[in-house]
Design a protein around this nucleic acid. Sequence first.
RNA 1: GGUCGGUUGGCCGAGUGGCUAGGCAAGGCUCUGCAAAAGCUUGUACGGCGGUUCGAAUCCGCCACCGACCUCCA
Length: 490
Amino acid sequence: MKADTLWLQNTLSGKKEAFEPINPPFVGLYVCGPTVYNEVHMGNLRTFISFDVLNRYLRYLGYKVRYVRNITDVGHLTDDSGEDRVEKRARLEKIEPMEIVQKYSRGFHRVSDVFGLLDPDVEPTATGHIVEQISMIQSIIDKGFAYEANGSVYFDVDRYAKEFEYGQLSGRVLEELDQQTRNLDGGEDKRFFADFALWKKASEDTIMKWPSPWGVGVPGWHLECSAMSTKYLGKTFDIHGGGMDLKFPHHECEIAQCQAAGEGSSARYWMHTNMLTINGTKMSKSLNNSILPMEFVSGEHKLLERGYPPMVVKFFMYQTHYSSPLDFSNEALQAAEKGFVRLQKGMESLENMPEGKGSKEDASVLLGVLNDALNHLSDDLNTPRCIASLFEVTNSIQRMQHHSTSLDSDTKSQCLAIFKGIVHDILGLEFSDSSAQNDSLDKVMGALLGIRNKARTEKNWAVADALRDGLSSVGVTFSDNKEGSSWEIK
RNA sequence: GGUCGGUUGGCCGAGUGGCUAGGCAAGGCUCUGCAAAAGCUUGUACGGCGGUUCGAAUCCGCCACCGACCUCCA
């Protein structure tokens, strides 16, 4: 375990706190995953990318992480009709609800792979944990914090608020919430406006439903996370994360459920990621302003001028802190793409740097700034500052290369280890591998390069330039420098 | 209406009571047959008005504008 402390912004306290696991070196991390009633959009993915960095960094620091990210496949109701989201979608597509679940779960996993996210260690589903949810509801009823009404079970917020603090996470004051509540389906069974469903009675024509002590029905949305986080991480665990739009009511209700069931206080650190916006407005499925992750890659969306590699999209996101809103724009993406290429060239220059005596000054500058880059990650995952430091290192490396400076082999390998550790292991970025071209292409290009070099030595600029321009139009760049000419595919 | 957060240079975006953030773009120069790459170099900032302070983009107050949440959402 490395000595440096990781600081995390804890929504529960509103403060940046030193991270101390309950049972080091083990860390329990729970993140609210997607509801698989349609495709995840780029805003959803931003959250998972942010927590991917947390997961990776914790592991880099030597922690043994159990990363749990659920899939909501039942219980998430629409607000207008009170119908289950998955079931509604199934009705519209005229297929089974579980087909919907499978289809969009697979899609989510494919996107996750394309963007290079580490898989969670456990990916539990709500439908797979009906028993656990029923048992938790029973505990809450037994403790007197829930009541049955007309085949449904509701959480008794009024009663709960007398013993515990309701609204701690979101800063809500119950009395002030009273006035502006929306009128939801099933509201007539509630005793108190703020009560929420733990179990919802199912109508006759519902396909997804389960028997319970209170009749046939479905679990409430907030419940699954409480039941599953408790099952896999324990009554009190280390970190619970999600998008900040889940702060209230979802996470507030989770905390209440865990407390009421006598399961402890749920997580010690709550982390919330900010939204991806388009023209300053939140990207949201309900606002129909979503861009899908694969549309970013293909460029097939009216707001996108062209496609961007997944790694560039991630890099673009890392240049904003996870807690700040991130506004999408083509210009910013293109700037990020150029920066990303520059970073790649910096790392390549470091790899190719000749080993020799080297100077102590160079060594301490490189190692110092690379350690700064790491330390910035310990400051609540400050990826923008981390990347700024990587650019500083890149500048130093290029300057050294420009002056044909060498580096002693120990320093070089240390620098490469940290540089690659940050870029590959923590940020999960992979550079396009120019050396992985196939052999025959290599030979063809080598031959063309030979022809061009012959023309150049004969000062036959017309032929040399015609070759360069012609290949440039199919995406191959020739460049000439002191050591000779080279080519690369863009 | 309530709660919380934000407003930084041409664009994106960090940040701390005093010391160049960084990237992209733009201008100049070096290298180069030309170009690219690379290096060197140069501008333009902290929404408005007050206050605290030796000193405020940073702390406080008021105002303006923007956003999120207020039982659908990552």
